[in-house]
Each structure stands twice: as C-alpha cells, then as structure tokens.
Design a protein around this nucleic acid. Structure first.
Length: 854
RNA sequence: GCCCCUCUGGCGGAAUUGGUAGACGCGCUGGAUUCAAAAUCCAGUUCUCGCAAGAGAGUGCCAGUUCGAUUCUGGCGGGGGGCACCA
C-alpha cells in the first residue's frame, strides 16, 4: 500500500500553477469578475491557525469561482504598520522596518506552502512609501473636502515613560511596562468626519444583503441613531442655559436631578473654586478612555450646589451634579435624571438619596400606589404625575411634550448618533506620517503634492521614551511651504486602520503610479466576497465603509460600499494544559502515560486539561501550522479546516481530527493508485446497461454535483465535504463485475477530483494526472449535473400517531390523501396505538408526513 | 455595564420554508488481516429498561403557540466576540 507523497506533490503543483500563471490577472479583464479578499495579516512573525483557516476559506471560494468561469482577483499583502514592531524595537533593538520585512519574508514563504491561489505579483505592504504616498494624498484631499480636522482629545499618558498608551497597554489603570498610574492628557489630534455619513452608513446597511445579519445589527447599534430632544434648562443665578439631550422628554415630570460630564465646560469652570470637585474630576479622568471601564465603574457624582429650573413646574428646581457616567462625547454632555425610568439614574438616585417619582405606570397598575423599587420601569404604559401628559402612552406623550417644548422655545427635536468622529492621530513612529507642516505664522500647511511621500526616517532611536519622530535631530525641521520660514512637520502618524481602509482598492491596481486606477476600480470594485474574523465586525468594516465613501467624494473611485459580500469566520480553539503549579503547557509538552493519564513529557507529573479556548500564545494552546504542513501536508490542513465546523463557528483543533483528514486523503489517493475497479479509458460513451447499484451510483454522482455546488454557493463547506465523502463511499463499494461499473467508477472519480479541487488542490492535480489528464485541474471547469437524475419516483412518508413516529410508508410521489390514509391505518404499530379508537383528525403533508390524531 | 452571537450523542457537527433528530466524520467496542503491530477492511454505536420484540426519554433550563417545535414567542442559565489607541 502506498502513501500519498504530499511533499513531492505539493511542491510540484505549486510550481506548475506558477509556471502556467494560473492565478494571474490584469488590472482590467473581460467578462464576469469575482473579487475574493481575505483580511490581510499583520506580519507578527509566523502564521497561526487563524490565518490558515481564513486563507483556506478564501482560497476555496477563489478556486471555486474560477472553475465556474469568473475572472478572479485574489490578492495578498501585509498590514505592516503597528505597535508590535515598536515593541520589538524597544525589546530587541531591531529597527521596526527590518523586523517587519523579516517577518513578511517568513510568513510569505509559509503562505506559499499552503498552495493558495494568490496572484503574488499584486502583493503590497502598507509600510512601503509607494503604498502610503497615495494615502497621504487621500488625506490631503479629505482635508480639502472638509472631511479632516484637528481638535483636542484625551489620551492615556504614562508619566514615567512619557508616552501615549494604547487602551490595551493600560492594565488596571497602570502603564503595562512602567506600572505608573496612567494620567489623561489632552492633545491636539487629527479626526476624520465619519459622523457626516452617520445616516448614510446606517441606511445603506439594509442593502448589504450578503452580510451577516449580526454584523449589520452590531453596526446599527454602534452608529446608534436616536430621536430625541435638545432641551435648554435655566440655571439659577447664571445667564447661560444648561443644554441636555434626552430620548425620553416624556419623563420630564419625573426629573429629580441634572448631571453633567466631568469634562463639561461648567464643571471645568467650577473646579477652579472647588477643590473637592477638581479632585473628583481628576479621579474620573483616571478611568481612561475605554467605554467598558467607564460603564462598569461605580456610579458616582458630586453636587455642584447649582440648581436648575424645571421647565414646566415653576416652583421646582433640580440639583446639578457632576457625574462619572455622563459622557462628554455623546449628546450635549449633560442629562436630566429621571430615576423612575432609567436604571443608571435610579442607581445614582438611591446612592445620593434623591427623589424617585414614577411618571409611567403599567396599564393595570393603580397610579396612586405604583412605586419604583430597585428596578427602573422601562416598558410602555400610561403617564401619571405628569400634568398635561397624564393618561398618554409613551409615544403620544413624546409627541405632546415635544410640541410644548418647541412652542415654549426651550427645546428642539434632534436626531443624535452614538457614532463619534474617527481619531486618526497616533503619537508613534511606526505608522504613516501625517503630511502636514505646522508653521507659527501660517498654521497648518499641507505638504505640497509634489513633495509626497513624506517618508519615515530610517535612522531612529528608541532609547528615549516617547515618539522617536519628536526626538529625531533633523526630520521634523522643514521650511514652511507657504512662507518659507522655519517650521515643523507633524510628528503624529496615522492609526493603522487608515491603511486597512483602502488596501482592497489598491489591490486592483497595485502598481499604478496614480494610486487607484479608474479603469481598474470600475472593473474589479467592489470586493465580491470579503472574509475575515468577526472581531472586525464594527471598527475595521465601518471605517472602510466610511473611507470608501470619502474616496468616492474625492474622486478616487466610484463605489460607496467596499464589500458587497462578507463572511465572518469563527476562531480556532484548542484545549489547554496546566501543570501542578498552574503553569500553562504547550500541547507538545503533554502526553499520555502507560496508565492512560495525562502527564508532562518532562517529568511525568500530572496535567490538568482545560476546556477548548481560542489559541493564544499566553495560554500556550497553540499548534504551529508549519509543523502540521510538514507532517501531513497543506491539503490535510486545508481539509481539516473545512470539514467539521461551519465557517462562522469556532473550530476545535484536535490531533484526531487532523489524522482523520490525513486518512481520507490517502483513501482518495488509493482510489486512483490502487483502484478496486480497473480504470478504463476516458471519454467512452455511457454504457447502455447498468446494474442496480451502478445505476444508483450514477445518480449519486449527479446528486452530489448538485448538492456540493449548492453547499459551496451558500458557504456550507462542512456539508460539501460530507457529501463528497458520501459519494466516495458509494464509489468504493461498487462491485467490479456489475454491468457498467468501470465506466461509472471513472466518471465518479473525474467528478470527485473536480469537486475536491478547491479544497485539496494538490491532491486533485495528482489524481487528475494519474487519470491521464495533461491539463491542470486548476484550469478545468466545474462538473455539470443532469437534472433528470435528481428526481426520485418514490418517497418515504413518516407516519405519526399524535405527533409520535410509528412507522414509515414508501409511496409514489404526490400520492392522494385517501390511499395514503388507508395504508397508514394498516400499519401494525399504528393499529396498536389506535387501540380501536377512531382518528379524530388526519393531517397529511404530501411527500412528507401523515399524522393521525386521536 | 452595554451591544452582538452561541448552546443538538462520548466529541465536531447534519436536519430547504415548523414535518422521520443524530447525515458525514472523530472516538469507542467487536471481528477480519498480521508472528505481532501499524495501516487497511467489515459490523455496531443517543440514553434508560429489556435476552429480544419493543417501550419510554431526548436538541442548555423553564414556560407558551401548534396535530406536530432543534426550528417560532417569552423568561432564565453557561460559553464567546466587540466596546472607538491591539490588529
């Protein structure tokens, strides 16, 4: 028995695909196009199983669409700017550029060993000046179009390292390296006006029919459109009014306090005279910039002593608090608190002993006795304690109160969005320089287009804390392009989401001098199928949708939506291992003892096996793809990635699973290398006579083509694999002596090979070749089924008594109800269950079920 | 805390629109082959009771709608993703 020699085969066919330029396309092609794109990787060092899964999925789609006659664009590149390169520079004293290039060359080689159908001539790396110079031009166009602006914003500041920290670098309010208490600092930063597109980004979600519903829902919630009112409250003893935004102006009669954000202008002003307040505000700001931290913090506040006048109750004033849960970025940075009908307000009121006045009660409740306990009442009902609103439903009351407030000139209807403008400034070296110059006399001056790109300096030092661009001896010193006086370059670089917001477009014309070539954009854009992790459901995907609109506005391309189809994949998981001391162990460090217990390889001490969780270096539950590919081959790894779990679910990596895949590969190979049925010549006419099993197998071939095509179209890859396995089971069980067996066996093999070719492309080529084909399967067309073979004449009906299965009936299709009932009532177990009783009702669903109700 | 998802045999998962729960695979058990093993092949495998025929239970948990619910509705619980400077 021979084993499939994947090492030789995979190298050979990868070379053959390259020599034949199978996967190369031009910037402009003819005929129907299909653009398949997987999220490009950050070059962190080596590929991981998440990459293997992502790129296997994409390759399957790309190869399948190619077989179906599309011109397929399937590119790959590198999201090469980012924080890890700087961390490596600090830790190992390697320049980020060098570290990144090394990683790219390792990972490129690893990806090539997977046999992916990329057009490698279109490879890009975002850290190359010939990539980011176009990005700088885009930014200048955004600036012209009023889509980019500068404003002050908070950053996490490590006072010891004198560095801005990312949210993930802040651990329990302390810097991850220094351990110093993190401060909040206001810096002038660049923003993109994504909020100009709030409504468009929201309403266009409806048309993204090939996106998962949950991603659209998440984006919808992220944009967070809400219809409400902007109210102006009189503050006692002050001229200015307090502006608050509320979606529940109908609960105004239940208002018992007002609160402003710690960063509200009134709070800042009061801090000067009130040291307690100043200390509180400082404390609040320590929480950092992450929403999760702010939301989970205990609700606290401090009374400013100011009172706010109630708009409808002349005698009533409300205390004004500064509260840590009021966000400056949302609405007006001020709220009115109605504890009865908002949980946060209620928690706050209970803590500071404020009144709770119910103003909406359930229909059936008695308005005189209805009280609020520890849970705010959020349902609809009838207004009470609300003067002119009493008796109205929430929506009616909203309408009435809005009109009143508008008439009184103290409120306006307003639509608010949770979405904030996108801060793109990063105080870091390893990113794309923001192409502006700061001049004392001229202000912000764009770098003239002919001076682009503004390149990162090669020689930088990470010895001093902070941004190396700030400390660079010469780089930032330039003459002002406007007045010629000495000026300074902007030392902030772009957020790395900037690069990933247009790389998909660049892949269509990766070498074009003018950036995004119009004809290439018109042919290839948008991406027909985008594939990547669900973790990008909001930020990357929303930024890209905005960026594409901004590019359209500035004439760089002419589509609004970058990705017409989206598939989000689940994570790759593995069980975890811990030794007696609770230290994590690599899978290779664990084995089974002779007694069948799990022990360490090192010294045989017991190992605890934990549940399967996402593979991560920190928990050491990782399997190196390179090792898998060198042991079992790329096709085995690819098959395993596709065979069990559906793409959008998490996938458990198991040793047994990969071995099962490897066994199946060998089984397929033996079907051509050691066939049970001698292989006959190709192209012989369909035999006129077929044995019963042979004829069934022949029908199965056509059914499988139909089912697999349907499964692939709908991304049910695990089902497609199951169907192919079923067909191979049928072909293997054919008897050589039966009439027509040789012909059907060969026909079946030719079909199977083409069906597996997007999944196990190397094996498919090897088998195709073994069947005597000179051309590549990669260039073969998808098999076609004959609809006539799909139809069955007989169907099996389920026979139920009171909804419980009691037997089955094999009948002709579309049998009439009477004859079905007659036969059903004769079934032994049905007779037994009826026990002489007459059926009360018989439900018959043709070709499916008979249910006898007694 | 908020938003989104998910839960089916020992395991991964199947089950067009509410209509035979468990396709396909892994694992396990028994058998064949072998000096022996690996590999391969054959058979069995949701659980409980039963020698069997068969009966009952069963899709995270609790209710509901229905002739019929893995599928629809409400509530609860476990696990996961995102939360704007990780990518």
């Amino acid at each position: 028995m021979t084993r499939y020699n994947f090492k030789e085969s995979e190298a050979h066919w990868q070379e053959a695909w390259l020599d034949n330029h199978c996967f190369s396309v031009s910037d402009i092609e003819d005929g129907p196009k299909y653009y398949v794109l997987e999220m490009f990787p950050y070059p962190s060092g080596r590929i991981h199983m998440g990459h293997v899964r992502n790129y296997t999925l994409g390759d399957l789609v790309a190869r399948y669409k190619r077989a179906r006659g599309y011109k397929v664009l399937h590119p790959m590149g590198w999201d090469a700017f980012g924080l890890p390169a700087e961390n490596a520079a600090i830790a190992n004293n390697v320049p980020p550029a060098e570290w990144t290039e090394q990683n790219i060359s390792v990972m490129r080689k690893q990806l090539k060993s997977m046999g992916l159908s990329y057009d490698w001539d279109r490879e890009i790396a975002t850290c190359h000046p010939n990539y980011y110079k176009h990005e700088q031009k885009m930014f200048l166009d955004f600036l012209d179009a009023g889509l980019a602006y500068r404003k002050e914003a908070w950053v996490n500041w490590d006072p010891l390292e004198k560095t801005v920290l990312a949210n993930e670098q802040v651990i329990d309010g302390k810097g991850w390296r220094s351990g110093a208490l993190v401060e909040q600092k206001r810096l002038s930063q660049w923003f993109l006006k994504i909020t100009d597109y709030s409504e468009d980004l929201l309403s266009a979600l409806k048309e993204l029919e090939r996106w998962p519903d949950r991603v659209r829902l998440m984006q919808e919630n992220w944009i967070g459109r809400s219809e409400g009112m902007r109210l102006r409250f009189k503050i006692e003893g002050r001229n200015e009014r307090l502006e608050v935004f509320s979606t529940r102006a109908d609960t105004l009669f239940g208002a018992t306090f007002c609160a402003i954000s710690p960063n509200h202008s009134i709070a800042s002003e009061l801090c000067a005279k009130n040291p307690d307040l100043a200390a509180f505000v400082e404390d609040c700001n320590r929480l950092g910039t992450s929403e999760a931290a702010i939301e989970t913090a205990e609700k606290r506040g401090i009374d400013t002593g100011l009172r706010v006048r109630h708009p409808f109750i002349p005698t009533k004033t409300l205390p004004l608090f500064v509260a840590n849960f009021v966000l400056m970025d949302y609405g007006t940075g001020a709220i009115f608190g109605c504890p009865g009908h908002d949980q946060r307000d209620l928690d706050f009121a209970r803590k500071y002993d404020l009144d709770v006045i119910p103003v909406v009660a359930p229909k059936e409740a008695d308005p005189k006795t209805f009280t609020i306990g520890e849970i705010a009442y959020l349902e609809d009902g009838v207004h009470i304690n609300s003067d002119f609103l009493d008796g109205l439903s929430i929506s009616d009351a909203k309408e009435v109160v809005a009109t009143r407030l508008e008439e009184a000139g103290i409120g306006d209807r307003e639509i608010n969005y949770r979405l904030r403008d996108w801060g793109v400034s990063r105080q870091r070296y390893w990113g794309c320089p923001i192409p502006v110059i700061n001049c004392d006399t001229c202000g912000i001056v764009p770098v003239p287009e002919e001076n682009l790109p503004v390149e990162l300096p090669q020689e930088v030092s990470f010895e001093q804390p902070g941004n190396p661009l700030e400390h660079h001896p010469t780089w930032k010193n330039v003459d002002c392009p406007a007045c010629g006086a000495p000026a300074e370059r902007e030392t902030d670089t772009f957020d790395t989401f900037f690069e990933s917001s247009w790389y998909f477009a660049r892949f269509c014309s990766p070498k074009a001098e003018n950036g995004l070539d119009a004809a290439a954009m018109a042919y290839w854009m948008p991406v027909d199928q985008y594939i990547g992790g669900i973790e990008h459901a909001v930020l990357h995907l929303l930024y890209s949708r905005f960026f594409t609109r901004a590019l359209q506005k500035c004439g760089h391309l002419d589509v609004a939506e970058p990705f017409s189809g989206l598939m989000t994949q689940g994570m790759v998981c593995h069980e975890t291992y811990q030794d007696e001391r609770g230290e994590w162990l690599f899978p290779d460090d664990v084995h089974q003892s002779d007694a069948g217990e799990n022990v360490t390889v090192a010294n045989g001490s017991p190992v605890t096996i934990g549940r399967s969780v996402k593979m991560s270096k920190s928990r050491k539950n990782v399997i190196d793809p390179e090792e898998i590919i060198s042991t079992y081959g790329a096709d085995t790894a690819r098959l395993f990635m596709l065979s069990d779990s559906p793409p959008d679910r998490d996938l458990d990596w198991t040793e047994a699973g990969i071995e099962g895949a490897w066994r199946y590969i060998n089984r397929l190979w033996r079907m051509v290398s050691e066939p049970n049925i001698p292989l006959i010549a190709a192209g012989l006419p369909t035999p006129t006579e077929m044995g019963e099993n042979v004829a069934a197998a022949h029908r199965a071939i056509h059914k499988t083509i139909a089912a697999v095509s349907n499964d692939l179209d709908r991304f049910h890859f695990n089902k497609a694999v199951a169907r192919i396995r079923e067909l191979t089971n049928v072909l293997e069980s054919l008897f050589p002596d039966e009439a027509g067996a040789g012909w059907v066996y060969r026909d079946g093999l030719e079909v199977v090979i083409r069906l597996i070719s997007p999944i196990m492309p190397h094996l498919a080529e090897e088998m195709w070749h073994a069947l005597g084909h000179q051309a590549l399967v990669a260039d073969a067309t998808w098999p076609v089924f004959e609809p006539g073979f799909l139809e069955e004449e007989m169907v099996t009906l389920a026979v139920q008594v009171n909804g419980k299965l009691r037997g089955t009936l094999k009948v002709a299709k579309e049998m009439d109800q009477n004859s079905v009932e007659l036969s059903a009532l004769k079934i032994d177990s049905v007779v037994k269950m009826l026990d002489g009783r007459d059926p009360r009702k018989i439900i018959y669903v043709p070709n499916k079920i008979v249910n006898i109700v007694v």
